[in-house]
């Protein structure tokens, strides 16, 4: 493993000369080969079976039915979502989410109507993977799960717990009579198809937008998860949203880091986003030494800014 890393580092240093080695390694995705294979498999399965089923479902059901189905499963999920709020210490949101369940189950006719949203009890998005993150677990390597798609080691563990705690299964797990089992399976199938149908608009856009869908989905996954973990307010991304720093000067500094660190200390790059910590390049001293020539750097950056169109 270490030798492999060393080889990767060497490859990065020789960046331009090493174009034949195929995909560049993303530090978040050490199992890219296997992940890509599963991604392809999922894609094939989706094209052949899941997507057509979801499209047919969307075609035969009116919007109001699909909304009802979404609300129904959403209501069941809210129980577990609320529990996760509690596990994360967000008492107010826990009360909010369980109040949602209370109102939607009763006045919302078993959850088919989302009365609570109209009462300004907002719906939230939590799962056990997020709870693990709040407790301090890092992402771990990127994992593409068969059928279920993008995840990470942490979120796979979270997903296993979610799956176990998901009320559809939770309520019916110990059901004795055989027909309960088939009912449960149908429910699970409906939940799956319904959520795929809800995602059709997103995947249509993805299909058009991405040069390399695998890389696009991976990048989107990490950003989306971070956003969810921080409830919509993640720490600002280092490069694109750093106010006050002139773009060109920042670019210059990055280029410097890039040169010193062989392209691996890319601020805003994968490693820094994964750990939410200030990025420390591997050869920090060399970078400091380089950065200790501020006059030169500022002059260079100023020049660059003047050239900006």
């Amino acid at each position: 493993m270490i030798r492999c890393l060393a080889a990767l580092a060497a490859a990065a240093l020789l960046a331009s000369g090493c174009a034949t080695t195929g995909g560049a390694p993303d530090p978040r995705d050490p199992w890219e080969g296997g992940n890509r294979a599963i991604f392809e498999f999922n894609d094939g399965l989706d094209r052949a079976l899941i997507r057509p089923t979801a499209e047919a479902y969307r075609f035969v059901t009116p919007q109001i039915v699909r909304t009802g189905v979404t609300n129904f499963f959403g209501n069941l999920q809210d129980i577990w979502i609320g529990t996760n709020q509690l596990l994360q210490g967000k008492i107010e949101l826990w009360v909010n989410d369980w109040a949602r369940v209370l109102f939607n189950t009763t006045f919302g006719l078993g959850g088919v109507l989302d009365i609570a949203s109209e009462m300004r009890l907002e719906k939230h998005d939590e799962d056990f993977g997020q709870t693990l993150a709040v407790w301090g677990a890092p992402f771990g390597p990127y994992v593409v799960l068969p059928v279920f798609g993008p995840s990470s080691v942490r979120d796979t563990a979270g997903f296993a717990v979610d799956f176990y705690m998901y009320p559809t299964f939770w309520i019916l797990r110990n059901a004795r009579p055989e027909h309960w089992v088939s009912w449960r399976n149908s429910l699970a199938g409906l939940a799956f198809v319904n959520s795929r149908a809800n995602a059709l608009a997103v995947t249509d856009v993805l299909e058009q937008a991405a040069l390399d869908r695998y890389a696009y989905v991976r990048s989107a996954f990490f950003q989306r998860r971070l956003n969810q973990i921080y409830d919509g307010n993640p720490p600002p991304a280092p490069r694109s949203a750093a106010p006050g720093i002139p773009t060109k000067a920042a670019a210059q500094l990055l280029e410097l880091l890039d040169a010193v660190d062989g392209g691996r200390a890319d601020a805003g790059g994968p490693a820094s986003r994964e750990t939410f910590e200030p990025r420390v390049p591997m050869n920090y001293d060399a970078v400091l030494a380089a950065a200790n020539r501020p006059a030169q750097l500022v002059a260079k950056a100023g020049e660059a800014d003047r050239q900006e169109p």
Partner: peptide, 20 residues
């Protein structure tokens, strides 16, 4: 939904530039 267009493309673009 917290997914930045620029950041997402940056990852892909970096890959593409490294390769070709």
């Amino acid at each position: 939904g917290g997914v930045s267009l620029v950041t997402t493309y940056r990852d892909t673009f970096t890959n593409e530039v490294r390769q070709g």
